[in-house]
Write a protein that binds this DNA or RNA. Structure first.
Lengths: 231, 231
DNA sequence: TTTTTTAATTGTCAAATTAACACTTACATT
DNA sequence: AATGTAAGTGTTAATTTGACAATTAAAAAA
């Protein structure tokens, strides 16, 4: 039974990598850190494990604290544990990635944290190893999205084909022929066309679609193929 | 700065999920636990973080301790942190997966641990949440292997096409037509045929192949397609 | 030596999928 | 009524797939 000081007993943090698709761009939500050291520097939203919490529970708590949202898609990405990653105290951090629909929380953004959406190409200097966390999360997102139709979590209930295409292009850092893209996407049988148009981005307007809950037997390889070259 | 007891300070363990392809079968290496509680029960090989070690370093140390091997392919899978996962003491465990060539270490197996290879379909009762770890590792391996030609880490330098096919079939829990399989695999340009045969498994003998280090521009979609239906 | 046995190796073809490519449509604005 | 803009759609050649079975190499047996 390990009692000797040979074994370390670090603090355990969770950090949340919150992805959103805002203004047709893939972004991450960052906050101004409220603790010393590095107070007021940009960082991921995080917190320490408390009481009997598991990391999953802590991450859900932290996400709710910032965004007010619950029941969000969230997955553990990676644990960071370098000795001096936090200069103040030995701390390991379990990083989670969540995909949120920005339209759902915009209003209840907790102003205490001065949260701000940043384009992935425009991340400010971050504390500790948080930049590395973002890189890991981005890689995770690519691979996850290549194997599962997960990016819809980032869109509102109703979305248009050009919006999804834009999102896929952002995630995979590639561009796709729109004729081929929509053919493949609709061929997956995942979507259901609505009788309503989004008129914001064009005069003609683009039809809204919804995820079709009924179908589980989609052809996802169809989407997968999009990702090949960028993986 | 967090000093109050509100925040937990658990022990941090690493557990190593060691995959091997032994006797044409995908297996994991388990040991008989040497610590109380649950002494002599089967478990993954693990250890606690010590001193200034990162989890990556600790995992490499633990792997070497058991197998004598260094420089092995190893990746962090997931961190387990449920409150009561270890009944004796609050412990979180960072699980790593490594793929080893069983022929390379067979000899130096550390007898102190009574290590044994187990088929995935025949895992004994394990301590704590180690069965869940194996399930997570298996899922990881499938997804990883679908996106990257990683399974060669499990084979010796020289291997035959029937061997690789068997391995892929084990990992994806599927079976493939051998004509199509070899056409696709060789089409990837990853392999280099040797002028030497493995005569162990047939009278005719099967030609050995090697990974061709030179080519980075393989068509991996070719392998990926194999995995579709089993993901 | 010949025959048998066993697993490795190889090829074809129809069907499906892909990638490349550009014109038409709907609608608001002028 | 004309214009501008982004949405929406179709064809074709080339490639890839999946389904399918005969041949070959070599050891073992007769």
């Amino acid at each position: 039974m390990p009692q000797p000081s040979k074994y370390i007993r670090p603090l355990v943090a969770v950090d949340c990598l919150i992805f959103g698709f805002e203004n047709q761009t893939l972004k991450v939500l960052l906050i101004k850190r409220k603790l010393e050291p590095y107070q007021n520097e940009w960082s991921l939203m995080g917190g320490f494990l408390e009481g009997k919490e598991s990391a999953d529970e802590a991450a859900a708590r932290v996400l709710k604290e910032l965004t007010g949202l619950e029941g969000i898609f969230m997955e553990q990405i990676k644990t960071f544990s370098k000795f001096d990653r936090d200069p103040a105290e030995r701390t390991i951090s379990i990083v989670y990635s969540s995909l949120i629909d920005v339209t759902k929380f915009e209003a209840q953004l907790n102003h205490a944290y001065e949260a701000h959406w940043f384009k992935l190409s425009d991340i400010p200097k971050l504390i500790f190893d948080h930049e590395e966390m973002i890189a890991a999360g981005r890689d995770y997102l690519k691979k996850k999205a290549a194997l599962q139709p997960i990016l819809f979590e980032l869109l509102a209930e109703k979305f248009t084909i050009p919006q999804i295409q834009q999102l896929y292009e952002e995630v995979f850092e590639a561009s796709f022929d729109k004729r081929n893209f929509s053919r493949k996407l609709l061929g997956s049988k995942l979507l259901h066309k609505l009788n309503e148009k989004d008129k914001l981005s064009s005069k003609k307007g683009a039809f809204y679609y919804q995820l079709d809950k009924k179908t589980n037997h989609y052809n996802f390889n169809v989407l997968l193929n999009l990702a090949y070259s960028s993986l």
